[in-house]
């Protein structure tokens, strides 16, 4: 890591804290509000002036979330999808990043350029043929339809390549080769352990993206037992009725796992994102 050098050491003005405080408030308030509404009934949620402290209805509504939709099942589905993608993403992108950073092979630079260029290809607009492909694989309404497309990404390869080329010196690899290690052994025993922190953050980003994905699961999942948490929150409200407290309760419960995770790994995520591709 390069030494961090910041703006010259003048004093921090008071209004800097005020502005940053406002930004923090803007970031956190909607989540607080979600919790407040998740603890009241609809009559309270639609009263003016609004209730701005949490009510006592949380456990009742949370219970309703679990009985209205198969919510436990949805969270488990989300964990399976996001967990598999996180691990697969971390390993497959590290592997490809390793190849691009540390191995010599014909076509390397061209192939890497292609990887970078694919980042600029908008693919979400191709959902109709994507659905046809999933359908012809008989994967409609299955979790692998969500997992497989998310296992590797151009961004992840770019990111891991960056880390691998700056973290691992060629001398170590050369020494390993002379000792008779195969390429796989070099990757698995030497390179991967050294970039594990970066791969961990990449896995986290993959986890968050997969956990929060909406469009694709919305298209390929059909039966309530296959729903991910995000689709389950959508299912809590329909065109004919909404129970605001219930909807917010579901949203809050679907966000909670990530918030808990964030408390433990947030610092590393921040560091990971900042340590990414654009330094120096």
């Amino acid at each position: 890591m390069t030494k961090t050098i910041r703006r010259s050491g003048e004093r921090v003005r008071w209004w800097t804290y005020v502005l940053l405080g406002l930004a923090v408030f803007a970031c956190l308030f909607p989540l607080y509000w979600m919790f407040v509404v998740a603890t009241t009934d609809t009559a309270t949620a639609t009263r003016l002036p609004p209730e701005i402290v949490p009510g006592g209805n949380f456990f009742h509504l949370a219970g309703l979330v679990f009985t209205t939709v198969p919510f436990v099942r949805s969270v488990v589905n989300s964990l399976i999808v996001a967990g598999t993608i996180a691990v697969g993403h971390a390993v497959l992108c590290s592997l490809a990043g390793f190849a691009f950073a540390k191995l010599r092979f014909p076509g390397r630079n061209v192939l890497f350029l292609i990887v970078v260029l694919t980042m600029t290809v908008p693919t979400q607009l191709a959902v109709i043929p994507q659905y046809m492909i999933i359908s012809s694989l008989n994967w409609v309404d299955t979790l692998q339809a969500l997992i497989v497309p998310g296992l590797a990404s151009a961004f992840g390869i770019f990111w891991m390549r960056q880390h691998l080329s700056t973290t691992i010196s060629d001398e170590i690899l050369q020494a390993a080769r002379i000792d008779g290690a195969t390429t796989w052994q070099i990757f698995w025993r030497i390179a991967f352990p050294l970039v594990r922190p970066a791969a961990f953050v990449l896995g986290l980003l993959g986890f968050v993206t997969a956990w929060n994905d909406f469009l694709w699961p919305f298209i390929v999942l059909k039966s309530p037992e296959m729903y991910t948490a995000q689709i389950a929150i959508k299912a809590l409200q329909n065109s004919y009725s909404i129970d605001l407290g219930l909807a917010m309760s579901g949203s809050f419960l679907a966000t909670l796992p990530l918030l808990v995770l964030f408390v433990f790994v947030g610092r590393r995520m921040v560091a990971g994102i900042m340590d990414g591709a654009f330094k120096g």
């Binding site: 609809t42 009559a43 639609t46 065109s239 004919y240 009725s241 909404i242 605001l244």
Partner: peptide, 12 residues
């Protein structure tokens, strides 16, 4: 019909 305000309005 069936909007949030409608549902709330019934009771108000």
């Amino acid at each position: 019909s069936f909007s949030d305000g409608w549902s709330a309005g019934i009771g108000k």
